[in-house]
C-alpha cells in the first residue's frame, strides 16, 4: 500500500498504468465519501452504490486529470453532483410512488435527536440547488466556506450568504412542523 504518497503522486502513477495506485486512492477517500452519502441517503446500501458510481467516474476521469485543482475538490464536486442526481431521481420515484414510505421513527436512533434525519434531508432536498449544495458540504462534510466556494465555482461570500438563507429557511420549515 502507498499510503505515504500524496493524491497527486497516486494519480500520476495511475495515469502511468498502475491500477493499484487507484485502489490506494479509493482506500484513502472511501470513508469520507461513504460517510457523506450515508448521512444524506440514510441508507448504507444506497450510500455504497453512490460511492461506487463516484469512484467508477473517477476511474475514467482521472486518466485525463490535469491537476488544475486538488483531487479532494474534484471528488467533493463529483459527490455533490451525485447527490443532486440522487435527490432528483428520488423526487421522481416519490412522484411515481416507487419507494415505500419509511416507518415513522425509523431513522431516529437517538433520543437526543430533535428531528428525524429523514425530515431534515427532505427539507434540505427542497432547498434551491446552490443553497442545498452549500448546506450538504457545510453540515455533512464540515468543509470550510473557502473550499465550498472553490468546489462550487462561486465566491466565498456567495457561499456564506447561501448557507445563511438555507439555514434560515430550514429553521422555519422544521420548527413549524
Amino acid at each position: 500500500m502507498n499510503s505515504d504518497k500524496t493524491d497527486i503522486e497516486l494519480i500520476q502513477e495511475f495515469q502511468d498504468g498502475n491500477e493499484e495506485s487507484f485502489n490506494d486512492l479509493v482506500r484513502r477517500h472511501l470513508p469520507n465519501t461513504f460517510g457523506f452519502f450515508v448521512k444524506i441517503c440514510q441508507n448504507e446500501m444506497d450510500a455504497e452504490d453512490l460511492a461506487q458510481d463516484v469512484f467508477l467516474k473517477m476511474h475514467r476521469a482521472l486518466k485525463n486529470f490535469r491537476f488544475q485543482s486538488a483531487f479532494t475538490t474534484y471528488l467533493y464536486r463529483a459527490n455533490t453532483n451525485m447527490v443532486n442526481s440522487y435527490i432528483r431521481n428520488k423526487r421522481w420515484r416519490g412522484l411515481l410512488n416507487l419507494d415505500d414510505t419509511p416507518e415513522a421513527g425509523e431513522w431516529d436512533t437517538s433520543h437526543e435527536t430533535d428531528w428525524r434525519r429523514q425530515e431534515l434531508w427532505d427539507a434540505v432536498a427542497k432547498l434551491p440547488k446552490l443553497q442545498r449544495n452549500v448546506v450538504m458540504m457545510r453540515i455533512a462534510q464540515e468543509l470550510p466556506f473557502k473550499e465550498i466556494s472553490s468546489i462550487l465555482n462561486t465566491t466565498e461570500s456567495s457561499a456564506k450568504t447561501s448557507y445563511h438563507y438555507a439555514v434560515k429557511t430550514l429553521k422555519i420549515w422544521l420548527e413549524n412542523e
Binding site: T113, D114, R117, L120, I139, A140
Partner: peptide
C-alpha cells in the same frame, strides 16, 4: 442541532 441530527 442540525449537525447533531446528522451524526450517524
Amino acid at each position: 442541532k442540525l449537525k447533531h441530527a446528522l451524526q450517524a
